[in-house]
């Protein structure tokens, strides 16, 4: 009688386990991308300073590139920071509780966080869709197309939402 139940639970557990492992890996991957973009942003500033102050020549693209690269790095880094518990929270009250009340409170907090991330992920993809479909540019001297700057936000926040689900599952099992 308990045999089929056990089997399904095991497979359920292994599905959840592999989901969590998969998300952890993806979050590390986006973090690697983020670190690369942060480094590229720094290099672009160094290049700009060199060209502007040493060569005394025109600088056109560096300011904007740095802004977009580092912004992308920050948003792509959010899932990794969630995975490693780096987003600061006030846990005095839940820590002082035990058992069911504690679990309910933690779940409520997680759902609020997840809700926000999903809303932002939706908004990000919508912004990306608009920028992409209407060929928006930034309107500056360099005037690059906008969507490559928005895409990392959409990816980063989507992965943040997926990682959030993984964190909730990790807490439950």
């Amino acid at each position: 009688m308990s045999q089929p139940y056990d089997v399904s639970e095991t497979s359920e557990r292994s599905v959840i386990g592999s989901y969590i492992r998969c998300m952890d890996t993806l979050s590390v991957a986006t973090a690697l991308l983020a670190a690369t973009l942060l480094a590229l942003g720094v290099l672009a500033v160094v290049h700009m300073v060199f060209v502007r102050y040493i060569l005394v020549e025109s600088t056109v693209w560096q300011t904007e590139f740095t802004t977009f690269a580092i912004t992308a790095a920050m948003l792509l880094g959010t899932p990794y920071v969630l995975k490693t518990g780096g987003h600061v929270a006030v846990t005095v009250l839940p820590d002082s509780l035990r058992g069911l009340p504690k679990r309910i409170m933690q779940l409520a907090a997680h759902l609020v966080g997840l809700g926000f991330c999903l809303a932002l992920a939706f908004g990000s993809w919508y912004y990306f869709y608009e920028a992409f479909s209407m060929d928006w540019t930034t309107g500056t001297a360099w005037n690059p197309v906008l969507w490559p700057a928005v895409l990392p936000m959409a990816i980063g926040i989507s992965q943040l939402s997926l990682q959030y689900v993984a964190e909730i599952l990790r807490g439950e099992h």
Binding site: V56, E57, S58, T140, A141, N143
Partner: peptide
């Protein structure tokens, strides 16, 4: 070395031989 207000000005001034800093 000039700071121009706007991309079109940047381009015109650069063509005239100025350096542009945004």
């Amino acid at each position: 070395t000039l700071r121009a207000a706007g991309p079109a000005f940047d381009e015109m001034l650069a063509t005239a031989g100025a350096s542009i800093a945004s």
